[in-house]
């Protein structure tokens, strides 16, 4: 019997009603593999990832994680029922809680976390999603080794942290959930080059420890060091799938995305 794919997304449509943001996304990820998403801002990468983790409902298509379907099967209700606006009638098609507990952990873009809670308190509730997959204290040691800064700031409230420190806490929270697949949405967004480097090194360590990743980033070189397959995201579709062997350089990608196709 063949082992099911870690993540299998088939023909996924979604967006914010009534606006469709992305359509017909197919994405396959084998166990132990990692993928990167690359594309211009505002083309639906984040919305796609939010759909994947169940924050917003998919419109059409299916999501399988380790062979288990995460979305409620069947077509979406009719327009009239959706407009009925009563939760008892229009059921959610996905439940972010069970997605997280299944091990698909999403570290969102610019994660603000909980401004008035301390780092220690935040980390203490982070293992909720791990459902006993890992021992919390061991993961905590691992996290402290990875981000010594997080250990130094344990007693501080999240809103007093710098952007880089907050991102470190956000990734730590993701790790505490014992991810089977970790989604990192622009983990180095808006950080100084020095912090970027530190964070990139930490993410590489996480990857080398065997955690599969879905990473969105604007830095091709950084992505290349992490992933096996690169998906180019363009106008809400996946326009190309590139294997690691023929990974293009930054210039080639720019030409690919902005030069020839959209002249």
């Amino acid at each position: 019997m063949t082992q099911p794919l870690l993540l299998d997304v088939r023909g996924l449509d979604g967006g914010y009603e009534p606006l469709q943001i992305f359509r017909k996304i197919d994405l396959q990820l084998a166990h132990g593999g990692s993928v990167g998403l690359f594309g211009p801002n505002g083309h639906g990468k984040t919305t796609f990832l939010r759909t994947l983790s169940g924050i917003i409902d998919p419109w059409d298509g299916d999501i399988f994680f380790e062979g288990v379907q995460l979305n409620r099967p069947g077509p979406r209700g009719s327009r009239r029922w959706r407009n009925f606006n009563y939760d008892a009638v229009t059921r959610r098609r996905m439940d972010p809680k069970s997605v997280a507990r299944a091990g698909l952990i999403h570290v969102p873009q610019g994660n603000l976390l909980f401004p008035d809670m301390t780092v220690a308190e935040t980390l203490s509730i982070a293992p909720y999603a791990s459902s006993g997959r890992a021992s919390a204290s061991e993961t905590l040691d691992y996290v402290f080794k990875l981000f010594p800064r997080v250990q130094e700031r344990l007693g501080s409230k999240i809103r007093f942290l710098s952007g880089g420190e907050r991102q470190m806490v956000a990734i730590s929270v993701g790790l505490m959930a014992a991810p089977k697949l970790l989604i990192l949405d622009e983990p180095t967004l808006g950080l100084s080059p020095k912090l970027r480097g530190e964070l990139a090194a930490a993410i590489l360590t996480i990857r080398q420890s065997g955690v599969p990743l879905i990473v969105v980033d604007q830095d091709i070189a950084f992505l290349e060091s992490l992933i096996d397959t690169l998906y180019l995201f363009d106008h809400g579709r996946i326009s190309r799938r590139i294997e690691k062997a023929d990974m293009p350089t930054h210039e080639e990608i720019m030409k690919l995305m902005f030069g020839e196709e959209h002249r």
Binding site: S53, P96, A100, F114, P115, M117, I125, A129, S130
Partner: peptide
């Protein structure tokens, strides 16, 4: 404080 982040934490 942050409903969405809490949801993502399971």
């Amino acid at each position: 404080q942050n409903r969405e982040a809490a949801q993502l934490m399971g």
